[in-house]
Write a protein that binds this DNA or RNA. Structure first.
Lengths: 356, 356
DNA sequence: TTTTAGCACTCTTTTGCCCTGACTGCTAAC
DNA sequence: GTTAGCAGTCAGGGCAAAAGAGTGCTAAAA
């Protein structure tokens, strides 16, 4: 599979994928000849196609049909454009569209990710996703506030370096002695401040028995809130847009396949798993036909966006194998730049990141 | 259309819909005769069917086919079961399932609605929805807290009688004089406490110019948060479950119809509009083939659940016209009861509702 | 040795046709 | 008013022929 192809074979293979992406139909030798290689005859191309078929790049659906690309062919095709310079397929309108929408909304990182997913999906017309990893793992609790309200209630406010958790009121059984609440707040702070979310996961109550004493009930509630937060928000950073667009492509005209696709794509955990299983260190990954994920028959292109050297998240597109790779890569590349500008620039989107 | 049908016509029509719901195939006179009306001949039934066709209840897909029900027939069918006593189609397992799941999770009303939607969809195998109206309109602001944090930030905490809004931190431009924040908090409370969300919508800053003075920036932020909340959370009370289940039914094997359905059903505003356009005062509504909503070809059954006389929300099912109406109505009825029990019972789910 | 033209061959897709099965509507008798 | 019987209609399946699309092979040309 690795032996170097002749220039002509390369050209033929590339052309074939191009045509197939454009039409979705098996490509015949005559098509290739007339549209890409008028200098040789179709018979010659046939001979080359035979060779390429033997090498495992392409196949015929049946004897009297043209050829369609196999995964190897797509990989070859993608390699040939990935590093290349020909990677600005975007029209001025498109870049303007991206740019405008990107700076349109200023909000938290969630908004931005969601917006980015929408833009990508709109421009490419494929299903897109964005996974925000900037908050993964190292969320540290800054400060816990216990705020008394009217009617014997209190609110727990948990401030982290990345944002804030405010939860439902908790009951304060005692008849609301302000000092009690205040002391409880102080103890909570003492115990939790500086801890990370990871630390909380396997937090053992017994460790700090001596300090809690009368605050055990409040303490339990806070721990419950934190744990609830962790479990509920684990998939909050996954955004999928344009899931229904896949149904426009002939590959997904079969209702069962469509249903299968939609059920995978609307499960954020599944999406997250698919995306994050990619190598973090690579800027672009293209995976064609991932088995055992429920979305075989698909190609997935992912781009990692970074600030400095740190990966902040991933954005990508999922579409049919026969996909406009050039355009998708162009769009993702552009969005990557936007992300870097916005996130790395002077204007932080996260109100808790400003200083230090 | 209104003239009273003969008893035999009624029986035939009802049987026909029954059979059609069960099989999905056009129903022939022989089928009806052998399964429902052995006392008369198929020829007689044919004559009756002819008459029913003339009356607009049924039609033939083509001359040599059986009859299929039209909307009028479904309406007739539904009327005949709605008020009837035969409305407990549920097996013991099913009621147990509903019961268990209902009391399984205790949380806020959001959780409950979502859970209810899931249960309904699971038991009926149709797409379900729940719209929670309990928080509509009359949400009153109880109290506003302005809480200073470290690093020149503060949090606005808005407590309403129905819950809480906690938003991102706001910047406090001045070098954090605690008294400043405290005073600001007091002013905010004075202005907003007791107001409803509706009041805020068309709130005019100028009204209270004299009091704000130096707090204008904070004031603006709070107002912004409130408005944002109103717009963002307007569709938070719509829950749809099992949208993909519709794709299992032969009516939606066509990919375009499926796409159309999914795009409507995943737009919460659209769903909300469809549901809430129903008459509030009726316990059950059944609408078959609503035009101009994007979900024609569907039947929608809605039940309003109440506490006392007050409608708390609506739950329902959307499925093909050929739907197991009896079962759906049974399920909705049961869930309605569950809702009333839980919401009206001693145990309030909303932590802010306890007293008074 | 490589390329090309030409032709036979293969396989899918479309078309037309006929036949069967499933109903109905009509009519004449009960 | 009801029924049995029969003729008529139409969709759908099966089958065969025809059309179309491409290839592989071979022999000749470059």
């Amino acid at each position: 599979m690795s032996k170097e192809l002749s220039e002509r074979k390369k050209k033929i293979l590339h052309s074939l994928v191009d045509l197939y992406i454009a039409t979705g139909q098996p490509v015949s030798s005559a098509d290739l000849q007339s549209k890409y290689l008028p200098e040789v005859s179709s018979a010659t191309i046939r001979a080359e196609l035979s060779a390429l078929e033997a090498l495992g790049y392409i196949e015929q659906p049946h004897t009297s049909a043209g050829r369609i690309p196999l995964k190897e062919a797509y990989k070859f095709y993608v390699d040939s454009i990935d590093g290349s310079n020909a990677c600005n397929m975007l029209t001025d309108q498109e870049t303007a569209f991206i740019r405008n929408n990107f700076f349109n909304r200023l909000g938290q990182i969630e908004d931005l990710s969601k917006e980015a997913a929408r833009i990508i999906s709109d421009v490419t017309n494929y299903t897109s996703f964005v996974v925000d990893q900037s908050q993964d793992g190292d969320v540290t609790i800054d400060e816990i506030k216990l705020i008394p309200l009217k009617r014997g209630k209190a609110v727990v406010l948990i401030v982290t370096d990345k944002g804030m958790i405010a939860d439902k009121a908790i009951d304060v059984k005692e008849d609301v002695k302000p000092e009690y609440i205040e002391t409880a707040g102080r103890v909570l702070n003492k115990v939790f401040a500086g801890k990370t979310i990871e630390d909380i996961k396997d937090f053992d109550l017994k460790e700090i028995d001596n300090e809690i004493k009368g605050f055990k009930d409040i303490f339990d509630e806070v721990l419950g809130i934190l744990r609830m937060y962790i479990s509920e928000h684990s998939s909050d950073n996954v955004f999928v847009e344009g899931a229904l667009k896949m149904l426009d492509y002939p590959e997904y005209q079969n209702i069962d396949d469509a249903k299968q696709f939609l059920s995978v794509i609307s499960d954020k955990d599944a999406v997250s798993e698919i995306i994050l299983s990619e190598d973090n260190s690579i800027e672009f990954t293209v995976r064609i036909g991932k088995e055992d994920s429920g979305v075989d028959k698909c190609a997935i292109i992912t781009a990692a966006y970074k600030v400095g050297d740190e990966v902040q998240g991933k954005a990508g597109v999922i579409g049919p194998e026969r996909m406009d790779y050039k355009k998708v890569i162009s769009v993702l590349d552009y969005v990557k730049k936007m992300f870097s500008t916005v996130l790395g620039g002077t204007k932080s989107l996260n109100p808790f990141d400003d200083e230090e």
